[in-house]
Simulated assay, not measured.
Amino acid sequence: MAGKGNTAKLHHYVPQGYLRGFATEKGRVTAVPLDRSRKPFTSSVKNVAAQTHFHTLEELEEPDEFEKALSGVEGEALNVLGKFERNEFPLSEADRWAFSYYMALQSVRGPDTRKTMEHLRAQFLRLEIGAGGRKNVGSWIKKNLGFDSSPEQEELLWAEATQPGGPPISFSNLSHIQHMLDTAESLTPYLATRPWSLVRFQRRSLVTSDAPVSLIRNPQDEAWAGVGFMTALGIAFPLTRKIGLLMSDPTVMLEGLEPDNPRVQETRSAVLRGEFDRIQTGTTAMEKLFNEHSAHSAREYVFHHPEDEMFVPDELPEPNLINMRASGLVDADFDGKPWFGVSDTQETKHEESEHA
């Protein structure tokens, strides 16, 4: 067993094997930063979509054990990707589930997932502590952190917790990994149970991003409404620069049926067997559908083959590592008074007066 001295340091949140599908034979890929102050650059797939020690678990004998486990999942996915390239489609049900899990994992393994978790936790802590009132900070520390605090510690926590954005929060690698695995497992069925279309391009090409699984909103939905894996009209995943996977809405086949109708389960089984899957010839409209959604879902970078610059959409979003934001009460200002009931200090004084 390898010791800590042999730990891999640079961990990819977009697999190198996947990015090679958009790279030259020598593994060179062009990265387009969403930060307009930076220019596009071409580099090895080894040097992009990666962070140092992103998955390192120092508490384990092999700190990069999870990174190695990811490599195993990615290896299986690359085998399936080879079947796509050879037109071995539809897939077996086992391969379909395995590749769906890979896509679900890819949709939640980036730094944006961790940043979003930290943002939401900070916002809700801000609300919890702020609404509890300044005088109750000590009891909050005792209940949640397990120690008797000093006035200085209470003042520091109050100041940090009630500042805009909430207190500084940093999730551990272990917390991030546990959340990633749980979320990927829950999302997998929403990918596997959609009809799949394998779209092959000849003259046109696809780009990808650091968040390559993109959700296609139903145009009939209200503009303010969110879109998720369950409600999306479609889900797009560029497999290589010449092949895309489009997962369509299965509910159109079940319109008017109750969930307990036998046809619902029959249709689900047929979808998993690939009976509704098909291979399509890529068109200009389909290329734009994939590329515009790939660009829109990007967090910091769009990636493409060095010869495919013309297929990068003109309008790119601003960089954004927080894909879900809390609003409403969490944005309120706090004056130190508790929002609900009386403070613990007041309750204590009341009890003392009753015993006197």
Score class of each variant (00 low, 15 high):
2 A>P: 11
7 T>P: 07
11 H>I: 03
11 H>F: 13
13 Y>A: 01
14 V>N: 01
18 Y>I: 09
26 K>N: 14
28 R>D: 07
29 V>H: 00
29 V>K: 04
33 P>G: 09
36 R>A: 13
38 R>G: 07
39 K>C: 06
40 P>Q: 02
42 T>H: 03
45 V>L: 01
55 H>C: 14
55 H>T: 05
63 P>Y: 05
69 A>L: 07
80 V>E: 10
82 G>W: 06
84 F>R: 08
96 R>N: 05
98 A>T: 15
110 G>R: 05
114 R>V: 10
115 K>V: 13
119 H>E: 11
121 R>Y: 01
124 F>D: 01
126 R>I: 12
127 L>R: 12
128 E>M: 04
129 I>Y: 07
136 N>P: 01
138 G>W: 00
141 I>V: 07
145 L>A: 00
148 D>S: 10
161 A>K: 01
161 A>W: 09
176 H>R: 15
199 V>C: 07
212 P>M: 03
213 V>S: 05
223 A>R: 07
226 G>H: 14
227 V>F: 07
234 G>E: 12
238 P>K: 04
247 M>T: 09
287 E>A: 15
294 S>D: 00
295 A>T: 08
296 H>M: 13
300 E>V: 14
311 F>M: 10
317 P>D: 02
322 I>M: 09
327 S>V: 08
333 D>M: 08
354 E>P: 04
355 H>L: 13
